[in-house]
């Protein structure tokens, strides 16, 4: 994989520094958000106006329903009352935060596994050692750190919602990684394993955004899903070049004129991000 590379390594380091600066700017905002999450442990304080109005609406509706029932107005029978209350409680703002906590714990477990997998990969000479492609090595190092930050962010949101932090890996995916470990004998196999995990993470978060109810859970998931999709795009392109026997084209920037036409779009094959590989919501929940 390190053959024929034409990367200007100092240039890459400089670029990485610039990227870190940009990243630090983003982190300031995100850390602020995470601090908000931690500080605002009491529910429904992040968007007080909205919550206040929703709470007022909820109280009003509940009074109407219960009042109508107790006054014997005949508007609601026993079944009708149950259905009306059920409908009221099923409104998004009042959906159980327990479900959100489980979804976030699963997300944290996926991130924990990703961190552990990249850590393992970086011990391999062709990923993190002297024979590694510098672009792939830098990508693995940076991506591992990003997954650590994602895990922290998900756990901060879990804490804010009153749940237990998840510091273990997703148990189902862990088995996949463990069974793949003996076969990780080349960059291509490692990249494909990472790709599988990243794709699973991205699809899970895309699916979760519609399933979550709490604003803070939606916010943290939304800010992460696109980043996992970016990991997928880059890994897909790298995987294709490795499979095609062209590791020398994996440079930053790549020699654009030498890339095959298909390399331009192989990283983003879908106009709409799929969710068929999304992990079950409770797969990584704390038992």
């Amino acid at each position: 994989m390190n053959e024929n590379r034409n990367l200007d390594e100092p240039e890459l380091i400089e670029l990485m520094e610039q990227s870190k600066d940009i990243h630090s700017d983003a982190m300031r905002r995100t850390r602020g958000d995470i601090n908000d999450l931690i500080n605002n442990v009491a529910p429904a304080t992040e968007r007080p106006e909205e919550r206040k109005e929703e709470a007022a609406e909820f109280t009003k509706k509940r009074s109407e329903i219960l009042g109508a029932a107790s006054n014997g107005l005949g508007i609601l029978g026993v079944t009708g009352l149950g259905a009306a209350m059920l409908a009221l409680f099923s409104k998004p703002a009042f959906a159980s935060s327990n479900t959100d906590i489980q979804i976030l714990q699963t997300a944290a477990s996926i991130e924990n596994l990703a961190v552990a997998t990249y850590q393992t990969a970086l011990t391999l000479p062709f990923i993190g050692g002297s024979s590694a492609n510098p672009v792939v090595k830098a990508f693995a190092q940076t991506t591992m750190k990003q997954h650590q930050e994602h895990a922290q962010a998900f756990n901060a949101a879990i804490t804010a919602l009153g749940g237990k932090q998840q510091n273990n890996p997703d148990p189902v995916l862990l088995k996949v990684v463990e069974s793949a470990k003996p076969s990780l004998t080349s960059p291509s196999q490692v990249v494909n394993l990472a790709l599988e995990l990243e794709q699973g993470a991205a699809e899970t978060y895309v699916a979760n955004v519609a399933a979550l109810s709490e604003a803070r859970a939606i916010d943290v998931t939304s800010s992460i899903l696109g980043v996992e999709a970016q990991h997928v795009a880059i890994l897909t392109a790298v995987s294709a070049l490795l499979s095609a026997g062209a590791p020398q084209l994996i440079t930053l920037p790549p020699p654009a004129a030498q890339l095959p036409a298909a390399a331009g779009s192989i990283g983003f094959p879908n106009a709409f991000y799929p969710t068929n590989k999304a992990r079950p919501q409770t797969e990584g929940a704390v038992k």
Binding site: A26, S223, I234
Partner: peptide, 10 residues
């Protein structure tokens, strides 16, 4: 030629 995923959070 810019690092493709510079930020951990969008």
């Amino acid at each position: 030629g810019t690092y493709p995923v510079p930020n951990a959070f969008a």
